[in-house]
């Protein structure tokens, strides 16, 4: 009984630690007037409306969503053929591309960001919006690469052999067997890249920070030049989007498997 109690207490403390800052931010975001107080004084959802109504915040939102939609798509477009090739072929030297795909995510983000800054400055494209899209695609290619590699590894190779015995060539196998089977992994990879791109600050800042504001850049700028509860409402909005996307992955896929549990059985 004490063991159960201690376990519950431990889980509660960790949960509180993780939730406390978000609870306060959520509270602050519904303040009636423009002030930073908690518990909130009055109740208003106006600051959520601001995200869409205020032209600056709305523009930042549009930038962020455009960036995330496009860069996640390119990240998947890079990861899919690469993961397929690594699964289909024996070519040990091709693993170098896998390392290249994993490196941007493992290295401290400042380094990747600075690499992009020097590169775009050198080729004279610094500040163009598309440079941020490409930079994010490279920065987050790791996520679809990992989920897709997991997806390919989960395909029983005898399925492909069975398709071949029934007359399917490589292209038909890819279209009728492989792609349908890895679709959930492809979607999760895209979703991971999308959510992280939406939240990313330093790479976006170092590529287009001087010319364009994404939501995280806008929050940071606002943080330095004075407080508005819209920052809080945007933060809550971000948490909600992330929880929604990951919740959907968990509902329609197997998130435990994606995060490294061997199989979907157990418990």
């Amino acid at each position: 009984m004490t063991a159960t109690f201690l376990r519950r207490l431990y889980f509660t403390i960790v949960a509180l630690f993780l939730a406390a800052p978000l609870i306060v931010v959520a509270g602050v975001s519904v303040n009636a007037r423009q002030e930073l107080t908690f518990p909130p004084k009055g109740f208003s959802l106006a600051w959520y409306g601001q995200i869409f109504a205020d032209p600056e915040w709305r523009l930042a939102l549009i930038h962020s969503v455009t960036l995330a939609v496009c860069s996640a798509a390119i990240a998947v477009a890079i990861a899919l053929p690469l993961a397929w090739f690594l699964w289909r072929r024996i070519a040990p030297w091709a693993n170098i591309f896998q390392v290249l795909g994993l490196a941007p995510f493992i290295l401290p983000p400042v380094i990747t960001a600075l690499g992009f800054l020097t590169f775009w400055a050198t080729v004279g494209l610094f500040g163009q919006f598309f440079t941020a899209i490409i930079s994010h695609a490279i920065f987050f290619v790791t996520l679809p690469l990992v989920t897709l590699s997991l997806g390919f590894a989960s395909i029983d190779r005898s399925l492909v052999e069975a398709a071949a015995t029934m007359g399917a060539d490589d292209r038909t196998v890819l279209k009728t067997v492989v792609l349908p089977l890895i679709l959930p992994y492809l979607v999760s990879g895209y979703a991971f890249a999308f959510v992280l791109s939406l939240n990313e600050y330093i790479v976006a800042y170092m590529t287009i920070g001087f010319t364009t504001e994404t939501l995280p850049i806008k929050i940071f700028n606002a943080l330095r030049y004075g407080y508005t509860p819209t920052m809080a409402s945007v933060s809550v909005f971000f948490v909600a989007v992330a929880a929604l996307v990951f919740g959907a992955i968990a509902k329609f896929g197997d998130i435990r498997r994606l995060l490294g549990a061997m199989s979907s059985e157990g418990n």
Binding site: S158, E161, A162, A163, A164, T165, G167, D169, T172, L181
Partner: peptide, 20 residues
């Protein structure tokens, strides 16, 4: 001849039924 041109039917140990 590659497998897909051999006109054969095969049953695998794992059965290899397409789950989708």
């Amino acid at each position: 001849l590659p497998t897909h041109k051999r006109n054969l039917g095969m049953v695998f140990q794992s059965l290899a039924l397409f789950p989708h």
